[in-house]
């Protein structure tokens, strides 16, 4: 089955990104396809490679980036939400790309299920 995932919060302040990550991991482990992960609202901050949590904490940007590269996931950061928050191409961790909100609507159309994580 094809899943679309929407992440509406950044790393650390809310559990949303952690939950979405665990969900994506579990879906892939079960042989499902994660068709696209769309990052909206403060969720765009999950793509910021300058994020540097303490060494004993999980690094969500790195986790998403690695999961994305390992499974060739389409990690899309909303352009309007990103620019508002100072997230630009040069800040993106590997595997993320910036694109329009249409990519979220497209995920809703193309994926069999759209699962939302936020506050």
């Amino acid at each position: 089955m094809k899943f679309g995932i929407l992440v509406n919060e950044g790393p650390f302040t809310h559990q949303a990104s952690d939950s979405a990550y665990r969900f994506a991991e579990a879906a892939l482990a079960k042989g499902h396809e994660v068709w696209r992960v769309f990052f909206y609202h403060d969720g765009v901050n999950n793509s910021n490679k300058l994020s540097e949590p303490q060494s004993d904490d999980r690094n969500l940007v790195k986790l998403w980036s690695e999961l994305g590269q390992e499974h060739d996931l389409d990690l899309v950061v909303c352009v309007a939400a990103a620019l508002r928050r100072g997230i630009k191409d040069e800040l993106l961790a590997a595997g993320f790309r910036i694109s329009g909100l249409g990519q979220l609507v497209e995920a809703g159309i193309q994926a069999d299920r759209l699962v939302v994580f936020g506050d």
């Binding site: 089955m1 509406n8 969900f23 579990a26 079960k30 299920r113 759209l114 699962v115 939302v116 506050d119």
Partner: peptide
């Protein structure tokens, strides 16, 4: 568990997150 979460999403045609 998270696998069960995935199964629930697959079993239901629509998921609605009450944020």
């Amino acid at each position: 568990d998270y696998g069960g979460f995935v199964d629930l999403v697959a079993e239901h045609e629509v998921t609605n997150a009450w944020l």
